[in-house]
């Protein structure tokens, strides 16, 4: 519970964050930027978990714990993605999305 701020405002914030992430995911040309957009989406989801837990079910902790899971998951996923991107870079000397089309049909 944060004084003076209702749940709608915070949910609006996370929605904005989520759609920025989606937009970034589809439009960025750089793989690193795409990865950052994915992080934004995950963060929006994490905020939602925490906020809904705090405002609607103050006596429970599942939402908070889940957000910690999401953070851990995001870290692991980022490590994996970075490893893939580095290997891709070795192969095509670029981290641009348009240079990753070598695997189509």
């Amino acid at each position: 519970m944060i004084e003076g701020i209702s749940i709608y405002e915070i949910l609006s914030l996370s929605s904005v964050l989520f759609f920025i992430g989606i937009y970034g995911f589809f439009t960025r040309e750089n793989l690193i930027m795409v990865l950052m957009s994915i992080e934004l989406i995950l963060n929006a989801a994490a905020i939602n978990f925490v906020i809904i837990n705090t405002y609607l079910y103050p006596d429970f902790l599942q939402g908070a714990i889940f957000s910690i899971f999401i953070i851990a998951l995001a870290a692991a996923e980022t490590a994996l993605a970075i490893a893939i991107i580095i290997n891709l870079y070795k192969l095509v000397s670029s981290v641009e999305v348009k240079d990753t089309e070598i695997m189509k049909y």
């Binding site: 989606i22 995911f25 999305v97 348009k98 990753t100 089309e101 695997m103 189509k104 049909y105």
Partner: peptide
């Protein structure tokens, strides 16, 4: 129809979503 497979993962994600 193989042209649909552009190789860009963002296109696939777009189609999926």
């Amino acid at each position: 129809i193989k042209g649909l497979q552009s190789g860009k993962f963002q296109d696939y994600a777009m189609a999926f979503i």
